[in-house]
Write a protein that binds this DNA or RNA. Structure first.
Lengths: 331, 331
DNA sequence: TGCGTCAGGTTTACCGGTAACGTAGCCTAG
DNA sequence: CTAGGCTACGTTACCGGTAAACCTGACGCA
């Protein structure tokens, strides 16, 4: 790690400022000088130092931080992918973190990240500690809150309403004649958004005079197992349900597996609905009734909102991305 | 973004060096001074500048870069999670990138990342462009190559042998009496490691006098659909196979779905084997025959190897993590 | 001839930390 | 009584870029 601008400057017989301009593709030098500088830079194996660049000019940081609830979530993996594709194309670097559904962990992460003076941040959810919000405002870094829509974002927001997702599914299941609905979730209070879906679901059912009959919320991760055993627990306690809404598709698929194992006919004896739109769900023998979330599009939109802001374009404060209820054959 | 060490120093009536020492938890100051400095720092809302710290001392970078083939891969999500848990606990920040199974894209990513002077890098696979290897050696950054084991790593390596995975599965299926095996894969040449598994698989079969009968390798992403349609194509062309080895579990589950849709009995008419160990696979009506890869453990081990190196401990050059063949009920 | 303008540079002054070294005052051992 | 060591600081130099201001010769033109 030896060659720096000074070394190149000396070897090329120019000042390091000229080298800097050449390597950044600026103006104010002849073609001849440019070729010479570039040749020397290559010969010396010059590796640029973005640390110095970002530090010195404090305008040039190309770091973007993104915090997701869990890195193992299939849905967020697609959001991350959408963000990364959009940003890496423009030369930004993505720093990631997981908050494990805890605003305190998010705060700790934000505290670490802002000390790198990132160009922007992408956070998941609308729930943050007051200290986090204060800090973000203080350092005045562009922030995009994704996933859960908020009408009063810290800065920008890209997402949809989880409450509406739940409500829409409730209406759909009512139209299909379901009257005794149950719910199987996970993570308890830690997942605010799953909670919001449940609330929307419940509100619609109650309004129609067919309120939620029973629910089972596990403390486990919301995966196949939790869905399987969650449904088992729920049906053992309350056998006469005619439909169960699950926290997400992974759990719903677990529920389907349980129903199949027990000879419960779906959807005749029991309806099953999920949320999220996992790839696996669509090739099951029976297409899962679920709400498909445009994950990659959310990531792309968040990245684009951030980049627009960085370029000085005003951009959209709040971007609503549409979810899509897929009727399927299990509801 | 106003307060810096100088401001705190002035307000506390000490030099900024003392402030630096206090805030980093060093020594060489009285309790009284420490309390005063910390109080002032909090009052001024001091946000440390790691850019300046890393740039100035060029020892303190806490950035670690990690490059995976695809961010949407469930297996790599767990590796990422393992790395992140291990590193974030120690105060490191993770910068990620995806190479889309292309060494050229990996090189572009490495070129970007090294200019941030990271403390270390984690790369997926043992295949890199010569320029990448040169660059990594030149900047002398600690590197861990994960996933595919290599006996001559750039620096350190954590993984297992994909060839052996394929060979082991081949032996297992032979023991179960299979003699006419097929293979369904994806990504063609782009995925070197899937290729290695296939080679191990083929070698064992050939040696036993029951060579691979047919194979179907799609250009698609290795997911459920590819498995479903890949098996359809394969069986249409070569109906009399008695077992099919899939690129991974996602595809194998797609294959199972196809078999079920067509009334093919598994494992009586056709054996199905996958690779990777996805969570979903274990709760299917029939437990999938597959090789479980300790993803999180690989991430953890990679992070630990890196940290050990950074602390100056010698650490292991090559760490082998064991995979586990799960017999299941489909093979 | 004198002056403005422009291309093609150079010079200077930082950015905010940290390492390395310096130093004053006090304590203690020989 | 004093050399030496320790504590608790302060001083200085530097990391490698970039912004902004400045320079200079050539050319066009009134």
């Amino acid at each position: 790690m030896k060659a720096n601008l000074e070394d190149i400057a000396k070897a090329a017989g120019v000042s390091k400022m000229t080298v800097s301009r050449v390597l950044r593709g600026g103006t104010g030098f002849s073609d001849e000088t440019r070729d010479r500088v570039i040749k020397v830079a290559e010969r010396l194996g010059y590796v640029p130092n973005k640390l110095a660049a970002a530090f010195g000019s404090y305008q040039a940081s190309t770091l973007v931080g993104m915090c997701v609830p869990r890195l193992t979530s299939g849905l967020f993996a697609h959001v991350l992918d959408g963000v990364d594709r959009a940003l890496s194309r423009l030369g930004y670097q993505l720093m990631i973190g997981a908050n494990n559904h805890s605003t305190a962990e998010e705060e700790a992460w934000v505290r670490q990240i802002v000390s790198w003076r990132p160009a922007g941040l992408i956070l998941s959810g609308r729930n943050h500690t007051p200290a986090t919000v204060d800090l973000l405002r203080q350092v005045a870094v562009p922030v995009v809150e994704i996933w859960d829509l908020t009408t009063s974002p810290i800065d920008m927001s890209v997402g949809f309403s989880h409450y509406d997702c739940g409500a829409e599914m409730g209406q759909f299941l009512l139209r299909r004649g379901r009257r005794r609905a149950g719910y199987v979730g996970a993570l308890a209070r830690a997942d605010v958004m799953g909670q919001a879906r449940l609330e929307g679901f419940q509100a619609v059912l109650a309004q129609a005079g067919a309120p939620l009959v029973d629910r089972e919320v596990l403390l486990d991760m919301p995966g196949f197992y939790a869905g399987y055993y969650g449904l088992e627990t729920l049906l053992t306690r309350t056998p006469d349900l005619d439909v169960v809404y699950f926290h997400n598709d992974d759990m719903a698929v677990g529920g389907l597996a349980y129903a199949q194992a027990k000879g419960i006919r779906v959807p005749e004896d029991l309806g099953i609905a999920g949320w999220g739109g996992m790839e696996a769900a669509s090739i099951l023998p029976r297409r899962l009734t679920t709400t498909v979330v445009p994950t990659t599009a959310i990531g792309k939109a968040a990245a684009e909102a951030l980049v627009a802001r960085l370029k000085g374009e005003p951009g959209q404060e709040v971007t609503v991305v549409p979810t899509r209820l897929v009727p399927g054959e299990t509801g």
